[in-house]
Simulated scan of single mutants.
Amino acid sequence: MSRGSREDEVRRMLAGPHPQVPADLAQRAAERGGRLLRRRRFTRWLVMSVAFAAVVAFTVWAVAAQPWQLPPAETTPPDGW
């Protein structure tokens, strides 16, 4: 197809009858947007809750295990050192 015939075809399509837009299109779009917003908000809340739980679990483990301290010596020096 040459460039001119494509342009003519597009012009014919645009000049033709336009389809009717549903009357409730704006309402459906607003409802869908609301659902997407609620889903995104819930996902953000869920991720933040999991991150908070992970921080709490790590803190509890660190306080209980105290990994920054050296473990007690396995052997003791002989008496009379």
Score class of each variant (00 low, 15 high):
1 M>H: 11
2 S>Q: 08
2 S>T: 14
3 R>A: 13
5 S>F: 11
5 S>A: 14
5 S>R: 14
6 R>Y: 03
6 R>A: 08
7 E>W: 06
8 D>R: 15
8 D>I: 07
10 V>S: 04
10 V>Y: 04
10 V>A: 07
11 R>T: 11
12 R>F: 04
13 M>R: 14
14 L>P: 00
14 L>Y: 01
14 L>C: 08
15 A>V: 00
16 G>R: 05
16 G>E: 07
17 P>D: 07
17 P>T: 02
18 H>N: 04
19 P>A: 04
19 P>S: 03
20 Q>S: 13
20 Q>T: 10
21 V>F: 08
21 V>D: 06
22 P>V: 01
22 P>D: 08
23 A>S: 07
23 A>G: 03
24 D>K: 01
24 D>P: 00
26 A>D: 15
27 Q>D: 09
27 Q>P: 00
28 R>I: 04
28 R>Q: 15
28 R>D: 09
29 A>G: 02
30 A>H: 05
30 A>F: 01
32 R>Q: 13
33 G>E: 10
35 R>N: 04
36 L>C: 03
37 L>T: 08
39 R>H: 09
40 R>S: 14
41 R>D: 15
45 W>C: 08
45 W>H: 11
46 L>E: 05
46 L>M: 08
48 M>T: 02
49 S>Y: 02
49 S>F: 04
49 S>R: 03
50 V>Q: 10
50 V>L: 15
51 A>H: 03
52 F>K: 01
53 A>V: 09
54 A>M: 13
55 V>H: 01
58 F>T: 14
59 T>Y: 12
59 T>A: 15
60 V>F: 05
60 V>I: 15
61 W>K: 09
62 A>W: 09
64 A>V: 13
66 Q>P: 00
66 Q>I: 01
67 P>D: 12
67 P>W: 00
67 P>Y: 01
69 Q>R: 11
69 Q>N: 07
69 Q>C: 04
72 P>Y: 00
74 E>Y: 04
75 T>I: 05
76 T>F: 03
76 T>M: 11
76 T>Y: 03
76 T>A: 13
77 P>R: 02
78 P>F: 00
78 P>L: 11
79 D>R: 12
81 W>T: 14
